[in-house]
């Protein structure tokens, strides 16, 4: 039985929704920005939206071979699979948390945490090694960038102590 709602088609639908949002947002500019006789600020986004929409519709009609993810062994539930990939999701969580929290908690705290966590998640088992690498490199990077290249890094909770 051929599936109708393949992954590519879902992807195409999501893109179409995105394109509609883009076009709507692009066209909702106040008209006084338009200069008569020449294309205004809405023309180019509209063209892009049309091309993108056409591409998505193409994918919708000809999704091509849909390579399914390797089938998990039968009997394994969806939850089981999620559980198996826990460290993958944890990494995403860490990376996103890092970019969000960096300005608030400061460079040193965030980077030591991220580095040691990532080194561990990427397969290092000797925790003392991971943490010391994280500490040493965070400090080294801090010194090189902050002192050497004069880039002011956020210090967060260390702000008072280090300045």
């Amino acid at each position: 039985m051929r599936k109708i709602l393949t992954r590519t088609r879902i992807e195409a639908l999501i893109i179409i929704v995105g394109v509609l949002g883009y076009a709507w947002s692009g066209l909702s500019l106040p008209p006084f920005y338009n200069v008569p006789g020449v294309p205004g600020p809405t023309v180019f986004p509209l063209m892009l939206a049309i091309v993108m929409g056409a591409g998505a519709i193409w994918l919708l009609i000809f999704p091509g071979e849909d390579k399914e993810a390797p089938k998990s062994p039968p009997g394994e539930s969806r939850w089981r699979r999620l559980l198996n990939r826990w460290h993958f999701y944890l990494m995403w969580g860490l990376l996103i948390a890092y970019v969000f929290l960096l300005p608030y908690l400061g460079f040193v705290v965030c980077s030591v945490a991220l580095l040691s966590a990532l080194i561990f998640l990427l397969g290092e088992r000797r925790w003392y090694l991971g943490i010391s690498i994280a500490l040493v490199f965070t400090m080294a990077i801090y010194l090189v960038f902050s002192k050497g290249l004069q880039i002011r890094l956020p210090l967060g909770i260390f702000e008072g102590i280090m300045r």
Binding site: L114, L115, L118, I133, F145, I151, L153
Partner: peptide, 17 residues
Amino acid sequence: RYLMPIVLVISTIGVWS
């Protein structure tokens, strides 16, 4: 496992700067 996290942190500083 060591290289990539460190490169990532350095890249993030590049973006921040």
